[in-house]
Design a protein around this nucleic acid. Sequence first.
DNA 1: GTAAAGGTTAAAGTAATGTTTAAGTCAAGG
DNA 2: CCTTGACTTAAACATTACTTTAACCTTTAC
Lengths: 145, 145
Amino acid sequence: MEDLLTIGEVARRAGLAASAIRFYESRGLIHAERTSSGQRRFRRDVLRRIACIRIAQRVGLSLEEIVSALAGLPADRAPSPEDWRRLTRGWGARIDQRIALLEALRGGLTSCIGCGCLSLRTCALSNPGDVAATLGTGPQYLLDE
Amino acid sequence: MEDLLTIGEVARRAGLAASAIRFYESRGLIHAERTSSGQRRFRRDVLRRIACIRIAQRVGLSLEEIVSALAGLPADRAPSPEDWRRLTRGWGARIDQRIALLEALRGGLTSCIGCGCLSLRTCALSNPGDVAATLGTGPQYLLDE
DNA sequence: GTAAAGGTTAAAGTAATGTTTAAGTCAAGG
DNA sequence: CCTTGACTTAAACATTACTTTAACCTTTAC
C-alpha cells in the first residue's frame, strides 16, 4: 500500500460519495495524481483539504469562493498549520455575521409576534390602510440583507 | 381603483419580480382572483403573506415547507393577527437551532485555529500518521449536522 | 384610435451542488 | 481463465428557486 489513497478510500474517510470527490476535483478544489492506467491517487493531505472545504461550506462560502480561498495554499507541498490558519482567518467573522443576521431576524420576529404583524414596516395592526405603500419601498425592513 | 392589486403593484410593493409572484401562485403559496380578461388581481393581504414567505425563507424553510405552514391560514378571510401568530410559532426555535449550529462551528473553529488542524477528530498535529483512519468514521466531528 | 405600458401562457434556461447512468477498463483472488 | 469489485468517462438527471423568452392580449394615456 502506497502513501496515496484511492478515490474509494478518500470517499470513505471523508464521508462523501466518490462522485462528490470527482466533482470537487473537476472544479479544482482538490488535486489527484494518476496511475499509469488512469486511476486517481490522492495525497493524504487531501483529507484535510476536504474537511476544510466542508467547513467552509458551513461557514457559508460557495464552492467558487472556496476555490479562491484554497488558492492561497501551496500546491507543491502539504500545507503547514500556518497555511491552514491563514486560510481560515476571517471565517470566524463571517460566522459571527451570519449569527448576527439570524439574531436580528429572531428579534424582529419576537417583537412582532405580539401583534402578529410580521415585518410590515409599520405594524399593520396600526396601519390598516396600508400606509406603507406611500413610503416607497414596501414591507421590507425585516427582509433586507 | 379597486381594492385589488395587479401583479405589478404586488411586485413593486413586495420588492419582488412579477415572475416571482407568478411562481409563488403556481406553487400555491399565494392566491389570485382573475378579471374577466384573465388578469390576476390580488387581495391586499397577499402582501403580508409574501412578507411572511420571505421571512420563512430566511428562517430556513423551503417553499414546500412554507406551503404546508401557510395551509394553516384561512383561505376565505384575511388572516387575523392570531392566525399569523400561530403560523410563526416555532420559527424562533428554528432560528435558535441554526444559531446554535453556527456557534458550535465557531467554537470548533476557534479551538482548532490554534493548531491549524481544522476539524480532524484528533488534531492532525498530534496525529501525523492519520490515526483517525482507524477510528472508523473519519474526520467528521465538525461536520455533523 | 393608436402607441406604450403592462398583463397572459408554456416552455426553456440558470445557478449551485451534486448523483446517476451507461459503457467500458483494471487488478486481485480462486 | 474468469469473476468480482473498484475504477474510468461523458452526459444526463435531480433539486430549489426563480428568470427569460416568445408570442400574444389588455388597459391606459394622449
